[in-house]
Computed example of a mutant assay.
Amino acid sequence: MLTKVNSLITTIDDVYDVYGTLDELELFTDAIVRWDLNFMVRLPDYIKLCFFILYNSVNKMAYDIFKNQGIDILPYFKKAWADLCKSYLLEAKWYFGGYTPTLQEYMDNAWISIAAPVILVHAYFYVSNPTTEEDELKRGDISKSIQCYMHEAAASEEKASDHIRNLIGNTWKKINDYQFINPHISQTFIGIAINLARMAQCMYQYGDGHGVGHLETKDKVKSLLIKPL
C-alpha cells in the first residue's frame, strides 16, 4: 500500500514541479479537492490520467479498510491528498512568481508538501487495530530550507546549513521523546513514522539522493540492500 502511495506522490510531485503550467495545476488541485470524476473533462490528458489513477487507487484503499474494519476513512484520505496538492500549488505559485519565502513560511508549508501526512494517514489505518471514528532547486522546485534562511537572514550557506542542522537535531529530540508519551498509540505506527523521518534524512543527507543518482545515497542503498556486511 505504501509503495502505491509513494509512487503516486512522486508522480504528482513531478506534475507540479516539471510538467504543469500554473493554470493546469490550479485545475488539477481543484479536481482533487472536489474528488469528482466529472471534473476530469477540464483537465489536459496527461493530468487526466494521473487524476484517474489517484482517484481509483485511493478509493480502493478506502474500500479495503471499510470492508475489513467497518469504518469509512475516505474523507481522511481525500483531505490528506487535497492538503498535499494545495501545498504543491503554493510552491508552484512561489516558483512562477519568483518569490523566495521566509524560512517560517517554507516550514509551515513544507511539513505538508514533504508528504509525510499523506503517508502516515494511510499507514495508520493499515497497521492499527480496528478503531472508531473518534481516534483520528531544479525543474521548477522552489528554494529549500537552507536557501530560504540564507535569503531571509542574509546568511552564508555554511551558517544556514548549521541552523537547519540544529533544527533537525531539536526535532529528533521531540520525536524520540514522543515514543514514550502515549502508550495507547500503536507502536507499529510510531515505528513507521520514525522510520519515515530516518529515511528522509538518509535520502537527503548529502543532497537530492532521490533525484540525483550519483550521490553518496546510492552507495548507502547498495551497502544496505545489495552488498550488506
Rank of each mutant, 00 (worst) to 15 (best):
E24N: 10
G20F: 04
K93S: 04
D13R: 03
T102Q: 05
W35V: 01
D64N: 08
I112A: 04
D162E: 14
D64R: 07
Y126W: 14
K138W: 10
H214F: 14
L2Q: 14
V5S: 02
Y19V: 08
G20M: 06
T29D: 02
D13P: 05
Q187N: 14
C85D: 03
M61L: 09
A80L: 08
Y204L: 07
N38I: 09
D14S: 09
V121N: 08
Q69F: 03
L225N: 04
L74K: 03
I65R: 00
S161F: 11
V41C: 12
G191V: 14
D108A: 08
A116W: 02
I73F: 01
Q104C: 15
I185Q: 11
K4W: 01
D13S: 10
K144P: 03
M61Y: 10
W35T: 00
I71E: 01
L2V: 06
F66G: 09
D135E: 15
D36S: 05
Y16F: 08
N38D: 14
D177V: 11
N68M: 05
K159M: 13
Q205Y: 09
G207Y: 11
D135S: 15
V121T: 11
E216N: 08
I181N: 09
W94E: 00
K222G: 12
I142R: 07
A153F: 08
W172C: 05
Y46M: 04
D72E: 09
S128C: 15
G70I: 02
D45H: 06
K60V: 08
G211V: 08
V121H: 13
G70M: 00
S161Y: 12
A80C: 01
C202Q: 12
L196K: 00
H214Y: 07
E134N: 11
D45R: 08
F180Q: 13
E26N: 11
I226S: 03
L84C: 07
N109G: 04
L215M: 07
K138F: 13
Y204W: 07
T11D: 14
E158G: 01
G140T: 06
G209A: 02
K78V: 04
